[in-house]
Amino acid sequence: DYYKILGIPSGANEDEIKKAYRKMALKYHPDKNKEPNAEEKFKEIAEAYDVLSDPKKRGLYD
């Protein structure tokens, strides 16, 4: 669930989505986080943001 990945409610607005994305992206960026699964988690976060930040894609997802 993209909302769960970003840690936001399904009714989140654009600003909340952007803030959550930035926070999670910094936390899991492969250059900052050396955990083995950090890169995979970072890709999931980027995919979630891509879908939820685009009103058309978000509409299809919801």
Results as ranks from 00 to 15, higher is better:
residue 31 D to F: 10
residue 10 S to N: 08
residue 40 E to G: 12
residue 49 Y to M: 12
residue 45 I to G: 03
residue 62 D to P: 15
residue 7 G to Y: 01
residue 40 E to I: 14
residue 14 E to D: 06
residue 3 Y to L: 00
residue 21 Y to M: 07
residue 2 Y to M: 04
residue 42 F to I: 13
residue 51 V to N: 02
residue 49 Y to N: 12
residue 56 K to F: 03
residue 53 S to F: 01
residue 49 Y to Q: 03
residue 61 Y to H: 05
residue 56 K to L: 05
residue 32 K to L: 02
residue 13 N to I: 03
residue 9 P to F: 10
residue 17 I to W: 00
residue 29 H to A: 05
residue 15 D to A: 05
residue 36 P to V: 14
residue 46 A to L: 00
residue 27 K to S: 11
residue 16 E to P: 00
residue 41 K to S: 10
residue 18 K to H: 04
residue 31 D to K: 14
residue 24 M to K: 13
residue 27 K to W: 11
residue 59 G to C: 07
residue 43 K to C: 11
residue 17 I to H: 00
residue 62 D to G: 08
residue 56 K to S: 07
residue 50 D to M: 12
residue 22 R to G: 15
residue 60 L to S: 12
residue 13 N to F: 01
residue 34 K to R: 10
residue 12 A to F: 00
residue 45 I to K: 02
residue 7 G to S: 07
residue 46 A to K: 13
residue 3 Y to V: 00
residue 44 E to S: 09
residue 22 R to S: 14
residue 50 D to A: 08
residue 21 Y to K: 02
residue 32 K to Y: 06
residue 61 Y to W: 09
residue 13 N to C: 11
residue 16 E to I: 04
residue 40 E to A: 14
residue 53 S to L: 15
residue 3 Y to S: 02
residue 60 L to Q: 15
residue 33 N to P: 13
residue 29 H to W: 03
residue 43 K to T: 13
residue 42 F to A: 11
residue 52 L to M: 02
residue 60 L to W: 07
residue 56 K to P: 02
residue 43 K to D: 05
residue 27 K to P: 02
residue 25 A to H: 04
residue 18 K to Y: 09
residue 23 K to S: 14
residue 28 Y to K: 05
residue 4 K to S: 05
residue 23 K to L: 13
residue 27 K to D: 12
residue 31 D to W: 05
residue 16 E to C: 06
residue 57 K to S: 07
residue 62 D to M: 10
residue 18 K to A: 14
residue 22 R to T: 13
residue 13 N to R: 08
residue 55 P to A: 09
residue 1 D to T: 05
residue 27 K to R: 10
residue 6 L to N: 02
residue 46 A to Y: 00
residue 1 D to I: 02
residue 12 A to K: 01
residue 15 D to Y: 04
residue 55 P to L: 09
residue 9 P to C: 06
residue 14 E to T: 08
residue 34 K to T: 12
residue 42 F to W: 15
residue 48 A to L: 00
residue 48 A to F: 00
residue 5 I to L: 08
residue 43 K to E: 12
